[in-house]
Amino acid sequence: MVADLTELAALEDAPRVVFFGMECSFSLPVLTTLLGSGIEVCAIVMPAAKDLFMLGSSISSTNTAIFRLPATHIPGGLLPMMQTGYTEERGSIVRLAQREHIPVWCVRNLAAQETRETLASYQPDLICVACFSQVIPSGILSLPRLGCVNVHPSLLPALRGPEPIFWAFHKGCMITGTTVHFMVPKLDSGAILAQEVIAIPDGISATVLEEHCAHLGGKLLAQVVFALMHGHAHPYFQDETQSSYQSYPQAEDYMVTAQEWEARHLYNFICGVADDTLPVILRVHILDADGAGVERYLLVSEALEYDNAALLPLEGNDPATIMRGEASDEWIVACRQGWVRVRESGSV
């Protein structure tokens, strides 16, 4: 597989790609890299959110399955757990499409004949997907002559599903990665075309890790597109015995019992996914004045440091499970192994 994207851009017969994405921090770097690699992105497809569909209704029937986005509109994000939507700092795939004169289509019903005919009119060699909130039906998967490929931010077959970065933090993974794979009807299960490991360093946020995965994914996807175009790809099947699937995180997935996790795991989970608007709920077992076991709950927005070996000072004959930090909103919490210093944003 060709590794130098400048060499890819110089190759003749640029592949024709229809790109499926969203206004999020994962789709944009992937699309940018495709364009910079000399790949012809002939159309962009986005899910039609309610506000976009109302906009489209002004130029077509409200029953239409797909409509072209007016060139002046910048839509917001659609996925609640990603950094979505347009800002000047992060950019926008729609704004990029406007600069590159690429048509943007908003789809309401991917299975409709109207949608298939619209996309078929571009005669794509490939459909490339990088973050899309709708299940893509077989009629679309079979449309391009070289197939559909997806960029997924995990080391498949591990962590299939819509939020693998959250679950990498939740499971205490030290590495993750990005996978480019063929799309089949079963989610995230097609043959792997390219994969590369990314370390998860202490203290990194999910937003930054997602950006690392997206930039790597764009590079891998560009390589895969040219490899498929020139018959140099070597896909291999996923090992189903090693597969795992996780759905969207629920409220209970943000609740952690401190004494059940090691300090490093807890520290990195809080750094990864918590903030003031979506804190981690930390459950701590303590003894009351009568020596009875009770639970205390903290809303934690930030982890400040950890020690994976030390114990808190003794309370009677046993180490303490929680103690005040230097600031009034700080706590030092004992874990299964070690302790974590956290900043509280509230209590429950």
Rank of each mutant, 00 (worst) to 15 (best):
M81S: 08
P313A: 14
S347G: 07
G231M: 11
L159Y: 14
I59G: 12
R341K: 15
M82D: 03
L216G: 09
S25V: 12
Q223D: 01
S27F: 08
C24Q: 07
I102A: 05
Q250F: 01
S345Q: 05
Q134I: 02
A65P: 14
V149P: 07
M229F: 00
H170P: 00
L96A: 04
P29R: 12
R341T: 02
L146E: 03
T62H: 10
D188V: 13
I93Y: 03
K171V: 00
V129L: 06
I140L: 15
T207K: 09
C335T: 06
E114V: 05
G293M: 11
L156N: 09
D276F: 06
D125Q: 01
V342W: 00
V333M: 10
D253K: 03
Q123V: 06
E252Q: 11
K50Q: 11
A112P: 02
Y297W: 12
W167V: 04
T257G: 09
N63C: 01
Y267L: 03
S154C: 01
D290P: 00
N317F: 09
P164Y: 09
H285A: 12
L220V: 10
G218F: 09
A199H: 11
G21C: 10
P75T: 01
D329G: 02
C173W: 00
C24T: 10
S121R: 14
L193V: 08
A48F: 03
S60W: 01
F67N: 00
S142L: 13
F169Q: 13
C131K: 06
V224Y: 03
E163S: 12
R296W: 05
L282V: 08
G91A: 02
D290N: 12
W167F: 10
P201Y: 06
T62L: 08
Q238Y: 08
Y86D: 14
E260N: 12
S92H: 12
V197S: 15
G218V: 09
G38S: 07
A227N: 08
A214N: 13
L78C: 07
E330W: 04
T207Y: 03
E88R: 11
E315I: 03
E117D: 15
L193W: 06
Y86C: 14
A320D: 08
F237N: 08
V333R: 07
S142W: 04
Q250N: 03
Q98P: 00
F166S: 06
R283C: 01
G91H: 02
P80T: 11
V333L: 09
P235R: 01
R145T: 11
E330M: 07
A65H: 12
L79P: 00
A309V: 15
I59E: 11
V225T: 06
G139L: 02
E23I: 05
R116M: 04
F19Y: 14
Q259T: 10
A310K: 10
Q337D: 11
D202R: 04
L266M: 08
A310S: 14
E302C: 07
P137Y: 02
L69M: 11
I192N: 06
E40W: 06
L187F: 14
L78E: 10
A49C: 04
V256Y: 01
Q123P: 01
F26A: 10
D4Y: 09
V18K: 03
P164I: 07
N308P: 10
L314T: 14
P144W: 05
E302L: 10
I127Y: 07
I198E: 13
L209H: 05
P153M: 01
A97T: 00
D290C: 05
P80Y: 04
